[in-house]
Amino acid sequence: MSVEEITAEDGPRERILAATAKLLSEGGQEAVSTRAVGAAAGVQAPTIYRLFGDKQGLLDAAAAEGFAAYLSDKTGLEPTGDPIEDLRAGWDLHLGFGLANPALYLLMYGRQRPGATPPPAAVAGTEILAAHIRRIAEAGRLRVTEERAAQLVHAAGSGTTVTLIGQPEGQRDLELSMLAREAVIAAITTGAPAAETPGPVGAAVALRAALPGTEALTEAEQALLREWLDRIARSQ
């Protein structure tokens, strides 16, 4: 919602968040102050403090709204028969959101504080990425652990996006994203199902992905087997 779309029926929280998003889009984080937000939303500063605590709380809420907007696009992607192509599509969608919403993206990904609890939408985004990686593992195409693969994709994808945001819009080297994406995919996947590749690592990764579908083991036995398989997968 933009400031122009605010109506009398909108509550103060909605008006404040819309005003914050508008100020972020126009001037970045430096443009966001309680005075500017209050003037744009038609509320007094005490209302902002009551709803969000302080400016940091307001920015955190704006980041949560940003994740929710991003997820509304990402969850609309229909899985295909090729999980690696789906990962490519997810990467490109992530980049496109960042370039279309640079100030919001930097708020979402450039201000993460160690130990801070991520917003629910951020957790949901992590789960979507994990699901992409799980499908690759189930297809026998993952060469590293699911956790390492997800961390690498997240780190490379967000880092590439932040780098491109920092380049002048008319001079952005979009090929950088393609090169980074393909380098990550090459690092975490195999050219053929891992089960067809000799060696224990690929077999361990594939079996680890299939564990949730088995009922032959108790929960404790599954936990122990996961630990062993993870150890094998990390041994390469």
Rank of each mutant, 00 (worst) to 15 (best):
D82W: 04
A41E: 11
G27C: 09
G81M: 09
G53H: 02
G53F: 02
G42W: 00
L24V: 07
R35S: 11
E65K: 14
A63T: 01
A100E: 15
A62C: 09
P46W: 13
A121C: 06
E85P: 06
A19C: 09
F97I: 06
A122Q: 03
L71C: 08
A31D: 05
L95D: 00
A36F: 04
Q56T: 15
G66F: 00
Q56N: 13
S72C: 02
L17V: 07
E30W: 04
P114T: 06
T34N: 10
L24F: 03
A121P: 04
T75Q: 15
S25G: 15
A121K: 05
L58Y: 05
A68K: 14
I128D: 01
H132C: 03
G38M: 00
G53L: 06
A40G: 01
T75G: 06
A39Q: 11
F97L: 03
S25Y: 03
T47I: 11
D60I: 00
L95V: 01
P118S: 01
A139C: 04
A68S: 13
L87M: 12
A89N: 13
G110C: 10
I84R: 15
P102D: 07
A21Y: 03
A36Y: 01
G90T: 06
A61Y: 05
N101W: 05
E138T: 03
Q44E: 13
P119Q: 10
L106M: 11
L51F: 06
E65Y: 11
P120N: 11
V32C: 12
A18V: 07
A131Y: 03
A21L: 11
A64S: 12
P118Q: 02
M108E: 02
G115L: 09
G90E: 08
P46L: 09
L77Q: 14
P120W: 08
R135L: 05
R113Q: 10
A139L: 10
A116E: 15
E138H: 10
S25I: 10
D60H: 07
A41N: 04
D54K: 05
V32A: 13
G81V: 06
A45Q: 14
T34H: 00
L77D: 12
G38K: 00
R50N: 12
P79V: 02
R135Q: 03
L77I: 14
L106S: 07
I133E: 02
D86L: 08
T75W: 12
A69D: 12
L129K: 00
A124C: 08
A45E: 10
L23D: 02
G81E: 10
G81Q: 02
D92G: 03
A61T: 08
L87P: 01
E138Y: 02
P118N: 07
Q56C: 01
T80H: 12
L71N: 15
L24P: 02
P120D: 11
